[in-house]
Each structure stands twice: as structure tokens, then as C-alpha cells.
Simulated assay, not measured.
Amino acid sequence: MAYENLLRSVEESAGERERELRSKAQKQAEEIRAKAKKQAEEIQQTAIRESERSALTERNKMLYLAKGEIKEQELKGREKTFRAAFDGAKQQLALLREDPEYPKVFERLATEAVSAMGEVSFIVHVDKRDLELSKKTLAAMGIRCEIHPDLECAGGLVVSSPDGLVTLSNTIESRLERTDESRKLEIYAILSGE
């Protein structure tokens, strides 16, 4: 019996040892699963954060590009409106010569141009349609000079030194061009409501 008791004791001891090993293995397996689950969750959260960051970056990029396109379209619209306004002004000014007030306008343009030349002798260049008006206006101002009807313009005149080194243009077109550049920012501000 001692042999049987020894065998039973060894079997019980082996069974207990097996249960302990199984329990320990099961605990280790659960710990590994829990750790793996935790790592998987961390990896998933990291991936989600990176995806959110990437989506936010892409969204901001798209917004920036869209705002740029909107500004570009806005500028094109302003430029188109600006051009239309100046083209309209040019069309109206092309008819200025028919206006009964044109002789007064011509006189003001001539006074500005002549006074800018000072005491230097000069030549006046006009459109042939303004030849008689320029003679009459300059005579009334007490100015004696050569008048050359060699321009094509909507009105006004060009005054130059005899050698052509100094030239002052005071035509309707030149004034409109100067206004175009100097008033562009003001008009853009008005068009944009700023």
C-alpha cells in the first residue's frame, strides 16, 4: 500500500502541479490578451489621432486654396468692373467735343499745360478738329506759339519744347490714364466696400 499511497501522492502532487501550471498559464494568457488589447487600443487611438490630424490638415489646405480662388475671382470681378467703368468713361469722353462746355474744358486744359511749361517757348499739338478752337483759345490767353494739328485724340492738347525733349500731354486720354492709375486703389476700395 505504501507504494500505492506513494503513487497516489505523486499523482495528486502532479495533478496539483498541473492545475497550478494551468492556472498560471491561464493568468499569463489573460495578461497577454489584456496587454495586447490595451496595445491594440493604443494603436487604434494613435491611428485615429493621426487620421484626424491628417484630415484637419487636408481640410485647412482645401480651405486655404478655396479662399485663394475666391480672392482671385473677387479681384477679377473688381478689375472687370473697373475696366467697364473706365471704358464707359472713355466712350462718354469721346463725345466731349460735341458738348457745349468743351471750349471751357479745352481752355482749362490749355491753361494747365501752358502754365506748366513756364516762360520757355513751346509748340502746341492738337487734333485737327480742335485747330480753330486752339487758335481762338490761345489768342484769348495772349499766347503766341506754333500750333500743329498732328494729334488724334478725344480732346485736349500736348505742349512740347521746340526740340521735343520736354513734352506735357494734357489730352483727355492722358488724363484718363493718369486717373486710371491714381484712382485704381480708391475705386477698388469702393468696390470691395472697405
Rank of each mutant, 00 (worst) to 15 (best):
E4A: 12
L6M: 12
S9E: 15
E12R: 14
E12K: 14
A14I: 12
A14S: 05
E16D: 11
E18R: 14
E20S: 13
L21T: 12
R22W: 00
R22Y: 00
K24R: 12
K24F: 11
A29N: 01
E30P: 04
I32H: 01
A34F: 13
K35Y: 07
A36W: 03
K38M: 06
A40L: 13
A40Y: 06
A47Q: 11
T57I: 14
T57F: 13
K61M: 09
M62E: 13
L63R: 09
A66R: 12
A66D: 06
G68F: 00
E72W: 00
K76Q: 02
E79M: 10
E79W: 00
E79D: 09
A85N: 02
G88E: 09
Q91M: 15
Q91H: 13
L95W: 02
D99G: 02
Y102T: 09
P103L: 07
K104V: 12
V105K: 01
V105G: 03
E112L: 13
G118E: 01
E119F: 05
E119D: 14
S121W: 00
V126L: 06
K128V: 10
D130W: 05
L133G: 01
K135H: 14
I143V: 15
C145N: 01
E146D: 08
H148L: 14
D150G: 06
L151I: 07
G155Y: 02
V158P: 06
V159G: 01
S160Q: 07
D163V: 10
T167R: 15
L168E: 01
T171S: 04
E173F: 03
E177K: 11
T179E: 11
E186S: 09
Y188K: 04
I190T: 10
